[in-house]
């Protein structure tokens, strides 16, 4: 479905002086600086796959999506989506894709939402029948009718995003690119959005590439993730594998009634677990350990024997922490 081989995108940054003089000077000898936003990435995605594309701000996620959608031309390498090279045949590619850039809207600012959808219907040449059916579905899941008559500029961020998601799906695209589609959404809107995407994927085998900072979105939708760092893909594979490898750590946090002073004894007692670590922060005690070697009851028993515990909580490592540790390690072998 999507084939990306050895793709890079360089941005040339000019160092310019301000004003007319700078303009003239810059015209003849501007100082060039090449910046690699995407650096030799390759991957392929099959029909119906849902892939999470994650990475820190500025990692190159949006740039990748812009190349896949045909907005930006890669500096090197080749992209094929459905057999089409997006930048060479932008219109043909555009017919089969849906795109949401969370930062901006594809709807017409001054038009009532209803009119934006009418324009989209004409652009994608959606039949009356399909249009009615899909609008009814979007209304059911995303609640569009509440604000369908309002001009887009008057919508709240959450309403606008729901409308944008509907807009990206109105022509039943084969591939859906969502670039931070959940920024600013409340929990119920997020759930609604995920539901709409899942339904499309189940019914039409819609392929999805999703970038987000919300790990719940990823865990809920994607079975595969790609992690991007400084323009390079540092991990591409199953979400479950990476969770297994990096997600074996458990964290126990205790609030104690008095200071915990037996740190050394504690460490001694659990020296068989190489991943074991203790952190004392005033009256708080945070213990991390590998759940395969150490059991929760062993740790709690030990702690309770030595101090008075006021409160206690336990957590598994979430994917966010996993990604953070992968960033630190840079190279991943799973």
């Amino acid at each position: 479905m999507i084939e990306v081989s050895h793709v890079s995108k360089d941005f040339i940054k000019y160092e310019k002086e301000k004003g007319l003089k700078g303009l003239v000077k810059g015209f003849f000898n501007a100082k060039k600086k090449i910046y690699k936003a995407v650096d030799d990435i390759s991957f392929s995605i099959k029909e119906g796959e849902m892939v999470g594309y994650i990475g820190a701000n500025g990692a190159g996620k949006s740039t990748t999506i812009k190349m896949l959608t045909g907005i930006l031309t890669p500096t090197h390498g080749e992209i094929k989506v459905n057999g089409i090279v997006p930048t060479l045949d932008r219109k043909a590619n555009a017919k089969t894709i849906g795109v949401v850039f969370g930062q901006r809207t594809q709807l017409w600012w001054d038009l009532p939402l209803q009119e934006s959808f009418s324009v989209l219907k004409e652009i994608y040449q959606v039949s009356d029948e399909d249009y009615e059916e899909r609008m009814a579905f979007f209304n059911e899941v995303l609640g569009l009718n509440e604000f369908i008559k309002s001009p887009v500029r008057t919508l709240s961020l959450g309403q606008r995003m729901r409308a944008d998601i509907a807009a990206s799906l109105i022509h039943n695209p084969k591939v859906l690119y969502l670039d931070e589609p959940t920024i600013g959404l409340d929990v119920s809107a997020k759930l609604a959005m995920r539901q709409a995407i899942k339904k499309m994927n189940e019914t039409f085998k819609t392929t999805l590439i999703l970038t987000t900072h919300d790990m719940d979105d990823i865990e809920d939708l994607c079975s595969r993730i790609m992690i991007l760092d400084h323009g390079k893909i540092i991990y591409d594979g199953d979400l479950s594998k990476i969770k297994e490898k990096y997600g074996t750590m458990k964290t126990l946090s205790f609030s104690c009634g008095e200071a915990f002073e037996q740190v050394n004894e504690l460490k001694e007692a659990f020296s068989f677990d190489p991943d074991f670590s203790v952190e004392v922060n005033e009256l708080n005690l945070i213990i991390k350990f590998n759940k395969h070697t150490t059991s929760v009851s062993q740790v709690t028993t030990f702690v309770m024997k030595h101090v008075d515990v006021v409160d206690m909580s336990m957590s598994d490592t979430d994917i966010e922490t996993i990604v953070a540790s992968i960033y630190e390690a840079k190279v991943v072998n799973v």
Binding site: G70, I71, A94, R104, I123, Y124
Partner: peptide
Amino acid sequence: NDGKIAMSLIKPVN
């Protein structure tokens, strides 16, 4: 100037 053009380029129109 504010990159709105991206929103036109993702649509199958000239």
